[in-house]
Write a protein that binds this DNA or RNA. Structure first.
Length: 491
RNA sequence: CGGGGUGUGGCGCAGUUGGUAGCGCACUUGCAUGGGGUGCAAGGGGUCGGAUGUUCGAGUCAUCUCACCCCGACCA
């Protein structure tokens, strides 16, 4: 285990990389732009997956799985969609290798060229809608509410662990509805599921809103998103839910017969979150000692560290720890007793802080005498002595408190880093000196949005759903604006 | 694809005017230690990214090549 991590204030990117690497979450693989998710990182992802999956099931969705490969011709059917993804696709052109006739190793067998190239999915709308055509005949087949857990590939130029990798894990929901209203309702429902998950489970406050036309998903009529603020003042899009209208139904000719016997195209939505959530989790809560995990997503919530000088002391401490451990286990708390004799307690303390275990309980000979344990919280880094008989009642309460403390801290941070501005000069100076979310009036044109982006690197993260402080004038052009929108520099 | 940089044990690095490879961490073994990353001692591990050239001799010089990283364009 490496010693120390780069300070957050000194070099934010390095700090992030250090935590991801040294806490054992993930590392770069031998393949360019791809990532190996290590067991500890994957354990956290599994917690995320499980909870989201429960929430999807509770809202009536079912899981299914569609192919990794998409025939190239499918892609060209929805014009905006192709345009959005064409520049970052991996393409399969051949299906066989052969021994290199001139030397060592193998080469592509040019005789094995595919008649039609296959695209490695960057997202699955096209293959799924091509399939839905056969699944949907009647209004009785609707709504069709399906989710897929999968990997997708987007050939990104520059990558960062979890935040942007050439291949990533995600879930993508694809639903079909009989009416526009129902599809819109589904779009709203799912962005709210994401928002609830982010706030209640990840402890990350998010803003909900719609994307401007320029930031909208390729092929969607409306994109809803949740945006979180990271500790360096940059925004991170944490999830999206798209209202696709009838675009894909028309492109793939998916029609159904209504009650009245008429033929109509179905209305569609799609929504997704990815392993990017892992990046958000790291950046939202962690500190200079390492990862900080919200208790609800920590693979292990409580770790016991024994302190002893000899075999007898170890036996005595172990016995007591095992009692406390089973009390907590029976209350549904996930625990670990680190009885390794190969490293010292101080090493373990540092290691569990680095890995973000929410609660650490140390027990040694002094505690045996006094009937206490030492309980250390990861979020505040504070320690206190608690009588042993109170541990099983206290720990679950403390876990809840840590969970809400992380959320409250993040809310407070966001409040402090959200600024309302009325002039372009003010806008630029806030971006440069403070960062964070900047609320400003915008005239609603893509042209203005692009100019601001070119000049400041800030983009419109979202257009809030509720218009809180009315109309005004665009900070860039002075033209009328109906409401303030949220600008930020983003990941 | 443009601009810059780096390739030396698992990781991080040093290596002078060319002289036959070293340090820290990690690893192995032993003893002590144990309430915040433990100390001492002894060990194992490298065809110096690759190819060609110059030279008595190349980690070091030259040419070519490959890979990766950083800054842009692209993006969940």
């Amino acid at each position: 285990m490496a010693k120390g991590i780069t300070s957050r204030s000194e070099n934010y990117s390095q700090w992030y990389n250090d935590i991801v690497g040294k806490a054992g979450l993930a590392e770069h693989s031998a393949v360019r732009g791809c990532m190996v998710i290590k067991p500890y990182g994957y354990a956290i992802w599994e917690k995320i997956q499980r909870q989201l999956d429960d929430m999807f099931k509770a809202t009536g969705h079912q899981n299914a799985y569609f192919p990794l490969f998409i025939p190239k011709s499918f892609f060209s059917k929805e014009a905006n969609h192709v345009e959005g993804f064409a520049k970052e696709c991996a393409i399969v052109t051949h299906y066989r290798l052969k021994n290199d006739p001139n030397g060592k190793g193998v080469v592509v067998d040019e005789d094995a060229k595919l008649e039609e190239e296959l695209i490695v999915r960057p997202t699955s709308e096209t293959i799924i809608w091509n399939t839905y055509r056969n699944w949907i005949q009647s209004y009785r087949d609707l709504p069709l509410l399906i989710n897929q857990w999968a990997n997708v590939v987007r050939w990104e130029m520059r990558t960062r662990l979890f935040l942007r990798t050439a291949e990533f894990l995600w879930q993508e929901g694809h639903t079909a509805h009989a009416t526009k209203e129902e599809a819109l309702e589904e779009t709203h429902k799912m962005i709210n599921v994401y928002s609830d998950f982010a706030q209640e489970w990840m402890g990350i406050p998010v803003l909900i809103g719609t994307k401007s036309e320029g930031e909208r998903f390729a092929g969607a009529l409306e994109t809803y998103c949740i945006e979180a603020l990271m500790q360096d003042g940059k925004a991170l899009q944490a999830g999206t839910s798209h209202f696709l209208g009838q675009n894909f139904a028309k492109a793939f000719d998916v029609k159904f017969q209504t009650k009245e016997g008429k033929l109509d195209h179905v209305w569609a939505t799609s929504w997704g979150v990815s392993t990017r959530l892992m990046g958000a989790l790291v950046m939202a809560h962690s500190d200079d000692k390492g990862l900080v995990l919200p208790p609800k997503l920590a693979p292990t919530q409580v770790v016991f560290v024994p302190i002893y000088k000899n075999e007898e002391e170890f036996e005595a401490v172990s016995e007591k720890i095992n009692q406390l451990k089973s009390q907590l286990d029976s209350k549904g708390v996930s625990t670990h007793f680190d009885n390794r004799d190969t490293v010292k307690p101080g090493f373990k303390f540092a290691e569990y802080e680095l890995k973000g275990y929410p609660i650490r309980i140390a027990m040694g000979p002094k505690d045996l005498e006094k009937g206490t344990v030492e309980i250390a919280r990861r979020d505040t880094l504070t320690k206190e002595f608690i009588p042993q008989e109170k541990v099983s009642d206290y720990v679950p309460t403390l876990l809840d408190e840590i969970q809400s403390n992380l959320f409250n801290k993040a809310i407070k941070f966001r409040e402090q880093n959200t600024t309302s501005v009325d002039t372009y000069d003010e806008f630029k100076s806030v971006l440069n000196e403070k960062g964070g979310f900047v609320l400003a009036h915008w005239d609603g044109t893509a042209e203005t949005e692009n100019k601001i982006k070119e000049e400041t690197k800030a983009t419109i993260r979202l257009i809030p759903l509720s218009n809180e402080d009315g109309s005004g004038k665009c900070i860039y052009t002075g033209n009328p604006s109906a409401q303030r929108v949220v600008f930020a520099r983003a990941y």
